[in-house]
């Protein structure tokens, strides 16, 4: 696992630690490229592909954040379930070659970009400027601890998750149900 003590000297590129750093950089690149595709590509299916790439990258980030469990859950839920659902919906609902160019205002692109840049930049500046205090850990955050906490201190969250999912399933069924003629 990732050691929490900061490494004093920067590692050489071809040392073991250096390679770990390279892999982290790859993960960042994967995340950003994936996100870029997801919000920019014209075809929705490609956007889903971008989303998958992005989420695999995010899962990698989680792995670097000492949490393989959440990383795997990320892949399982987002790639295995959400992305599949979205692409399923695209196949069901989106007619091929559905492109209506120029319907919306031409300003929407720059405006969107401006807003996004402002928000992202603001957050980044805020993050860099703030001094985040490090507090000593009281446990190791292992999956066992997650399980115990989830069923004791955070049982409310657990219950909420189950209720939300149940409602979502039923709601989805009710909304999308189409009576088959004949």
């Amino acid at each position: 696992m990732i050691s929490s003590t900061p490494i004093a000297a920067p590692p050489a590129l071809f040392s073991a630690d250096g390679l770990v750093g390279v892999i982290f950089l790859v993960m960042i690149a994967v995340t950003i490229i994936g996100g870029f595709i997801a919000c920019n590509s014209e075809r929705l299916v490609r956007a889903v592909a971008g989303l998958i790439v992005c989420f695999v990258g995010v899962a990698g980030l989680y792995y670097f954040l000492n949490s393989p469990f959440v990383a795997m859950m990320q892949v399982l839920i987002y790639v295995g379930a959400v992305a599949v659902t979205i692409s399923f919906a695209i196949m069901l609902a989106a007619p091929e070659e559905q492109k209506k160019i120029g319907v919306s205002s031409p300003l929407i692109g720059p405006f969107g970009f401006g807003t996004a840049a402002l928000i992202a930049g603001g957050f980044s500046v805020l993050a860099v400027r703030t001094e985040w205090p490090a507090i000593a850990k009281i446990n190791d955050g292992s999956i066992k601890k997650i399980g115990i906490q989830l069923l004791t201190d955070y049982s409310m969250v657990f219950e909420l998750i189950s209720i939300v999912l149940l409602i979502a399933i039923i709601g989805a069924l009710v909304i999308a149900r189409v009576e088959r003629k004949n």
């Binding site: 998958i52 393989p68 795997m72 859950m73 892949v75 399982l76 790639v79 295995g80 379930a81 992305a83 599949v84 692409s87």
Partner: peptide, 11 residues
């Protein structure tokens, strides 16, 4: 992990 990656296979 195995289930996570197996579930991506359908993509």
């Amino acid at each position: 992990m195995i289930f996570a990656f197996a579930s991506t296979g359908s993509m």
